[in-house]
Design a protein around this nucleic acid. Structure first.
Lengths: 390, 390
DNA sequence: GTTATAAGTCAATTCACTTGAGTAATCAAC
DNA sequence: GTTGATTACTCAAGTGAATTGACTTATAAC
């Protein structure tokens, strides 16, 4: 198992692990940087940065990309993330399928795959993971040999809560079991989270949230979830179940309704079914949108105001740089939702001279959660706060 | 966006600063600890802990408090926070008064004072701060000589937002100016925050949130605010204005209303005024409560359901260990509000075997925000993440 | 009394960062 | 075209804080 840095106990070595992630994270966030620039950005001496860079180049995590002359003085040697330096595996468990993706260090997928599940109980998933492993080793032996770890996305909430027993729950799963099961089946470090938090990380590693440290992600899965990032850290809550926005009640024309009953893919599906239409897949939805389908339009006219209320809530409670919308809905539909959301003016986010719009469409598409699972691992490599953990 | 990121790097001295805070924080959270126990808790060797303890004793921040024998083996020498080792100043600026408190290192107030303000503009406040400084030096020379810094609480939101122009705003203040003004007037490091966040810190340093890392504080000031703490850090948002819950609309018997219009001290005041009663001070409110006043009771019957909705929101979005209620309302009223709040069952916080109740009354009383201002400073001393900052 | 266990000290070593002196490459001014 | 200012970077020595390993002390159990 490749590791960004072998775990060490000595304190200077912990410091080094932290500083390595700091340097790697700055290079990732900025794209290309020279030693002196990094030195200023990280608050380290050029010498320290030089030593770290030499190591990172040696290990293949970054590579020289040229020189830059910015006026007088010696032009800086530039370094950037080496995509082939390391990889991360993302696994998304859904009731009927196991989705997987392998991302390179820049967040680009080098392999994506889907295994149908007739049985979502732990033993069956474990068997399917073996098949997945073999398939990956066949298709991308180089990437598999340089995997940093695996992120796993499962529908929350974890543990017993007042929200348990909903449709999205998987049978026979518990959080601790899940972590151990994946660690054993895949033989690498595991990061477990829900779809919305993973989606938020996907956009941060490569997408709409690159460079952002405070933002929220409204994720359309089967239901709807909220991923929160504050100061570059995900806000997980005391028991890992933060972001359960789907059960909160919003106002509608005729009373109130839970957000996920009016603004989720499942709610759209039900509305279509009420008009005698089949459950649509992703492409069918995109087609419906292209055709200006009347039922879809009606759904949007109901969903958008409810979502606007949710965003108002998120803005006033979190004061994020932006709220990203995305997930298992075609881009066109998300765009139309955003266009139809009339955001209230009495919000802390309604400020002049904003650098980012209040609403942004996610850029990771239908595989957002799967990519996000892998992004959980990549994010660790770029974030100093994880230095002591692995 | 301009962001002043804390340098998160580590060199030997910074590592030491971090480890000192780690040790001090553990001693504070646990009460009394021996070297070996600390060594295990902090992940350092006994030797490293020994050196740090020697320094902290030398500086007077901790003191030996006895020995403890837990079975076989040499009994551990125990250490605890030395109250007189250091102090923190808290200042709360209200439109009509300047409140101040000096806390010892354990969070106990050694001085509290109130200066009436006829003018809340910066120059007037600055003049009053000089008087405050003199008064403190007279009354508590020892504490003033050992001040770590000053926390300042002012009504938010800071900067221009869609919520600006509300009654609680102070005339002529801007965030950066404020920081500089207080730093100059008091001649010490300044920590600036809003009342709800400060209140949350007050309860963490000494009160209902001791030992908690994930919780929320619903603060009754003039309006109502929300302080959020996640993994021991306050959630401030991208522009420092997180927690503006007062403008969110809740459902009432007859439609919807902003939370602060039905569940704030101002709303209670208005209801009393509508019945021809004068604006009550804190003690009057306590008396009304003791008399089972009918208007107060009516207000509670309206405020409680709105607050319950707010708590439902907070629980599902944050998954906190508990939600604390407190601030400028007498304990008895807070207790009655809590008793009358019917919390919904479909919440992630509705889990079996909770270690803390879903709702908790704050323990810091009417001075919560002022004490919290000082707690902002104490919290820095106990939190490793601030090692790089000062 | 002997032994196991736990807390704690002392001295030597290690690790990564900093400091300070020096080199190299570019631009700008005369 | 030479000189000097500016910026990027290297090399070697020094420093600070933590770790390691051997040893001491105090208590409980047998």
């Amino acid at each position: 198992m490749l590791s960004i840095l072998p775990p060490q106990n000595t304190s200077p070595e912990r410091a080094k692990s932290l500083n390595r992630r700091l340097v790697l994270g700055r290079v990732h966030a900025t794209g290309e940087m020279g030693r002196a620039e990094l030195s200023r950005a990280c608050g380290l001496t050029i010498q320290a940065v030089s030593n770290i860079i030499a190591e990172l180049v040696e290990e293949g995590l970054i590579r020289e990309t040229g020189r830059r002359s910015t006026g007088r003085g010696l032009p800086a040697t530039l370094y950037a993330i080496n995509p082939k330096g390391a990889y991360a595996l993302g696994v998304e468990v859904r009731p009927n399928a196991l989705l997987a993706a392998v991302l390179d260090l820049t967040g680009r997928p080098v392999l994506t795959t889907r295994h149908a599940l007739t049985d979502a109980r732990p033993e069956a998933v474990s068997r399917e993971l073996q098949a997945l492993r073999l398939e990956m080793e066949q298709a991308q032996p180089e990437a598999v040999s340089r995997l940093l770890g695996a992120g796993v996305v499962m529908p929350g909430p974890f543990g017993t809560t007042g929200l348990s027993g909903t449709a999205a729950d998987l049978p026979g799963w518990h959080e601790l079991d899940a972590r151990a099961l994946f660690a054993e089946a895949l033989g690498m470090p595991i990061d477990l989270d829900n779809d919305a938090n993973a989606a938020a990380m996907a956009e941060r590693v490569k997408g709409a949230a690159q460079g952002l440290d405070d933002y929220a992600y409204l994720y359309f899965g089967t239901g709807i979830g909220l991923g929160l990032v504050s100061q570059g850290r995900r806000v997980a809550g005391a028991f890992g179940n933060a972001g359960e926005i789907g059960h909160l009640r919003m106002q509608t024309k005729d009373g109130t309704a839970a957000l996920e009953d009016v603004a989720s893919r499942l709610s759209l599906q039900r509305r279509l079914a009420a008009h005698g239409r089949d459950a649509p897949d992703f492409d069918t939805l995109a087609a419906l949108n292209a055709q200006d389908d009347a039922v879809l339009d009606e759904w949007i006219s109901i969903a958008a105001p409810a979502l606007a209320q949710a965003v108002h809530m998120i803005e006033n409670l979190f004061d994020p740089e932006t709220v990203i919308l995305g997930g298992a809905l075609p881009e066109g539909i998300v765009d139309r939702l955003i266009a139809r959301m009339a955001l209230p003016e009495n919000s802390v986010s309604n400020r002049p001279g904003r650098a980012h719009p209040r609403l942004t469409r996610g850029e990771c598409g239908r595989l957002t959660a799967t990519l996000g699972a892998a992004a959980l691992i990549l994010n660790r490599a770029f974030s100093p706060q994880f230095a002591a953990l692995d």
